[in-house]
Design a binder for these strands. Structure first.
Length: 431
DNA sequence: AATAAGATGAACAACGTT
DNA sequence: AACGTTGTTCATCTTATT
């Protein structure tokens, strides 16, 4: 039962860090560079997506007499009491690398304009109305919904609200592998032809059980070649639900923590030294580094001397890692994180990467009082970036028990993010 | 006491059909 | 327009094991 150290180290060698890059996802190109920010926003969020339109157009045959190309959207626009946000499809936000569609400008309310810059993150698929509430507390800025499958080998649908510039974004180099085979080359020899996955589903905090692996193996061993239709369907359903990969004949297994570290954009062994449960939890709750870094990349030219960062709900330090990988120096970082395991992970990383800046740890957002903020701001000369994703526990689809919305026990800490951001802006005199 | 393992659906969007 | 189908999801809790 469980996974032996041998399996674990074998799993490390499954990772293809230096695998060459090639196109695997079939992108539809579209050249749109709009100067009309508002028109673009409207197109992006209140109508069908431009890429989707092109996709439709490229289909060989189309029933052109049909008026109902987007029945759902039409229905929504009529019915909804503006409590449902439109998720872009494909979920590429204001643009992703290697895709010509880009939104390069937008208009923000005066009180939303930085500095300080800020970036807020949470899961895209919340209960209805949540993102509208979040948006209403963050200067009515339109969320940017991005799926990390455009940056790495796993899906990760997230919403980001930020006041960052949009022009001249750039990704971390080298671009990470985006297919399963590139990210996990050793799985290819065991991969059945009838498993058509090219990318993984979202990395969660829990993994599939060994019993499930056994059940799937038993089901497959009855067959010599291709299994029956219903067995195939059962297996595909389970491997997708639990994000399993092929590690042997008729054998599937969950991803190893080391593999997840690389897919999520962290250094290998970023979370090493802690229990598997802690590693899965920390990584499952984390930023996908490349995705966030793409949005933060515009700060590099603005802060060549480095930044003062207020990192809320830091987790395993996704924001810090992203800035570091972008080559943006950190002068002072105030990192707020409840879990002491996560705090130690950040501290370890801070040491290992020889950071010259100063790291200050706070264990609870409620300890971040006006007075503390005032002290830091006086000492540093202000925060340049306030970044963080508040707890998603009560919003996430995987939560069977307490998915009770933004007012839930943990997710309501969002309002502390708002409180702290507001206070920082007031003290810095930008409102 | 810490850790691992296993069991536990529903909400919601996307897509298809009628 | 309406309705059914398919698919995805930063989790929580209890129990067993170390």
């Amino acid at each position: 039962m469980g996974y032996s150290p041998n399996e674990a180290s074998a799993a490390v060698s499954r990772c293809g860090i230096d695998a060459p890059l090639s196109e695997l996802v079939d992108f539809i190109s579209a050249a749109h560079l709009s100067k009309e920010a508002d028109a673009e926003m409207d197109k992006l969020y209140f109508s069908s997506h431009p890429l989707q339109k092109d996709k439709k157009r490229k289909l060989p045959k189309e029933k052109s007499h049909s008026i109902k190309r987007y029945p759902k959207i039409e229905r929504k626009r009529r019915d909804d009491d503006d409590d449902a946000l439109h998720l872009p499809n494909p979920m590429i936000g204001f643009g992703v690398p290697r895709e010509s569609f880009q939104v390069v400008s937008r208009t923000l309310r005066r009180e939303a304009i930085g500095p300080p810059y800020f970036l807020y993150e949470n899961v895209a698929l919340t209960p209805k109305g949540v993102w509208n509430t979040i948006k209403s507390h963050l200067y009515e800025i339109e969320p940017e919904f991005v799926d990390s499958k455009f940056f790495c080998a796993a899906a990760r649908k997230r919403g980001y609200i930020h006041n960052l510039p949009l022009n001249d974004r750039f990704p971390i180099q080298p671009l990470p592998p985006r297919s399963i085979f590139q990210a996990l080359p050793a799985t290819e020899k065991w991969w059945p032809s009838w498993d058509d996955r090219e990318q993984l589903n979202c990395i969660l905090t829990c993994v599939g059980s060994a019993q499930l692996t056994d059940r799937i193996r038993t089901a497959l061993e009855k067959y010599d070649g291709v299994p029956d239709k219903h067995v195939k369907k059962y297996v595909m359903g389970q491997v997708k639900k639990w994000n399993l990969v092929w590690t042997g004949k008729n054998k599937v297994a969950p991803l190893e923590p080391d593999e997840i570290e690389l897919i999520m954009g962290y250094p290998l062994y970023h979370t090493r030294g802690y229990s598997r449960s802690e590693r899965y939890k920390g990584l499952g709750n984390a930023f996908q580094v490349d995705t966030v870094a793409y949005q933060l990349s515009v700060l590099k030219s603005l802060y060549p001397e480095g930044m003062n960062v207020l990192s809320l709900f830091s987790g395993i330090g996704g924001a810090e890692v992203a800035l570091h990988k972008l080559g943006i120096p950190m002068k002072n970082v105030v990192s707020v994180e409840k879990s002491n395991v996560c705090r130690r992970i950040i501290e370890g990383w801070w040491e290992q990467t020889n950071q010259e800046g100063k790291l200050i740890h706070v264990s609870d957002v409620r300890e971040v009082t006006d007075g503390k903020l005032e002290g830091w701001i006086r000492s540093f000369g202000g925060f340049d970036l306030v970044i963080g994703g508040s707890p998603c526990n009560n919003l996430a689809g995987g939560n069977r028990r307490t998915r009770d919305g933004l007012e839930g026990e943990h997710s309501s800490l969002f309002f502390d993010y708002v409180r702290i951001l507001d206070t920082v802006k007031i003290i810095m005199g930008t409102t």
